[in-house]
Design a protein around this nucleic acid. Structure first.
Length: 457
RNA sequence: GGCCUCAUCGUCUAACGGUUAGGACAGCACCCUUUCACGGUGUAGAUCCGGGUUCGAUUCCCGGUGAGGUCACCA
């Protein structure tokens, strides 16, 4: 039904955050859906700052979501600030009062210095039934709402009023928002009818839930300010991809979408009714997928961006970076993990001679230090003889493999790897050696040999 | 509590009366392998309950139960 009006009417969607706090992931999905829907139908996507509450609204929070959407690449076609539209609301207020849809009401101030007058909506007290494109028909008896307040005074309109006026004035055709707004809808429809505005198409998306299956609230550890995901090294497209799949599915088994693919695939018909738990592990997986598929240049840029100063400024960082990148990229779910790796000492050994207990050089139950030295020396000699052109992962492996095969791989490769990394877990020794370079590799092998040298002099 | 909404593996979900109820994440096992990571293969795991309707219900209807949302001079 709604699809038929689309062909004749240009789609206009909007997302309307209020600048009363750092924008968090919960609201992200609504912005995305509205953006996707507008783009898919060649329509307009409006971003509207709902800053009618002068006490709670802060410029910094407006800047915050502006910066967020810029990072995410969700570009709006128009931007409005409700605080700059007081004139418009006032004229509607006057008109509504003149037509008997609203009235100035004398109030008994509830608190000290409270208001003695507010503007209330004259509720016709009927039943409102509306169609929601995801939930179906919903009916409310609006008599329960009473004559609700729509403005504190002529210069201080409230949410329900401003939303309806703006959506009307801006020609909004589709309202996609979270299900927590379902119960607001009858009020807004009442106001629409009072000012003669057409009813837009509604699509209420499922609630996003936390582990406890409750709506994401400010207190939730999951509800971090959205830009923290940028600061922790998540890929914006991955975050969006993840959010898109929370309460919507394409009907196919595709899970990774580029933005154009998402725009193409998105449809209100496939939005979910039931709540969706925000699952950070799945986000991590999707982000990982994006990291793997990312253009190498961008991988490098992000790597540098998240590399701690202490590492990035080391003299041989630039040369080693090319080797380091693949090792790091297959180990992280988001770039911020590099910091954790540094904290756990999992990066330093690429640059400086690691310290370790010499017993760790032994493979499993081996304890024959003479043999250990003999093997390390043999490895060292072999590598020493290797021309620098073939001091690559493959070249090194080729040079060492026959010996490792004959002596037992663990007997050769474990001590070598340990000598190079000083850690129980690390990339393979060939990769390490090629990354460290011939000189450094030989030095570290010599260092290991020296640890046992005295005993055998 | 009133009103509104929802209900398939632990999680995100597919199925729009007929399927061995499918996929993904997480889990587990195995393989690869000198360790880690990557990768590969495999495995376990769900239709909230009770009534209908129907030859046949995850699917349609009713009733429970459970969960969530919302009830501001916030948005």
């Amino acid at each position: 039904m709604s699809e038929q009006t689309l062909s004749t009417k240009k789609v206009v969607t909007r997302f309307a955050p209020s600048p009363t706090g750092k924008f968090h992931v919960g609201g992200l999905r609504s912005a995305l859906y509205n953006y996707l829907y507008a783009r898919k139908h060649g329509g307009t996507y409006i971003l509207r700052c709902e800053d009618t509450d002068p006490i709670r609204s802060k410029k910094e929070y407006e800047d915050y979501f502006l910066e967020l959407f810029k990072w995410l690449g969700i570009e709006h076609d128009a931007y409005y600030r409700q605080s700059e539209r007081t004139e418009i609301y006032r004229s509607y207020l006057n008109k509504m009062i003149a037509e008997g849809h609203a009235y100035v009401s004398k109030e008994q101030p509830k608190e000290e210095g409270g208001r003695t007058e507010v503007i209330r909506f004259k509720n016709p007290n009927g039943v409102v039934t509306f169609h929601d494109d995801v939930l179906g028909n919903i009916s409310f008896n609006t008599a329960e709402l009473g004559d609700f307040i729509i403005a504190r005074d002529f210069d201080s309109p409230l949410y329900h009023l401003t939303v309806v006026i703006d959506d009307f004035e801006m020609g909004v055709t589709h309202i996609i928002r979270g299900q927590e707004h379902v119960s607001n809808t009858p009020r807004q429809i009442l106001i629409q009818e009072a000012i003669g505005a057409p009813r837009p198409t509604y699509a209420h998306a499922s609630i996003i839930l936390n582990n406890e299956r409750a709506k994401l609230s400010k207190r939730d550890p999951l509800v971090r300010p959205a830009l923290e995901y940028r600061d922790e090294g998540y890929v914006p497209e991955a975050l969006l991809n993840f959010m898109a799949l929370l309460g919507w599915n394409p009907g196919t088994e595709q899970e990774i979408f580029s933005m154009p693919e998402l725009i193409q695939a998105f449809s209100i018909e496939r939005m979910q009714k039931q709540g969706a738990v925000f699952n950070p592990e799945k986000l991590e997986w999707i982000n990982k997928e994006y990291i793997k598929k990312m253009h190498p240049k961008r991988q490098m840029a992000m790597l540098d961006e998240f590399m701690p100063e202490a590492i990035r400024t080391l003299p041989d960082y630039k040369e080693k970076r090319e080797h380091l990148a693949p090792i790091l990229l297959e180990r992280i779910g988001h770039f911020g993990e590099i910091k954790e790796m540094v904290a756990q000492g999992e990066l330093a050994y690429y640059f400086i001679q690691p310290e370790y207990e010499k017993e760790k050089l032994f493979w499993k139950d081996e304890r024959d230090s003479a043999k250990l030295i003999e093997r390390l020396v043999r490895v060292s000699d072999t590598l020493s003889a290797l021309p620098s052109e073939v001091f690559t992962r493959e070249g090194i492996k080729e040079a060492l493999w026959p010996y490792a095969e004959s002596e037992g791989r663990g007997q050769i490769l474990w001590p070598m790897r340990y000598a190079l990394s000083g850690r129980d877990k690390s990339p393979d020794p060939f990769q390490l050696a090629s990354l460290l370079g011939k000189k450094e590799t030989l030095e570290r092998l010599a260092f290991a040999i020296a640890l046992y040298h005295d005993q055998h002099e």
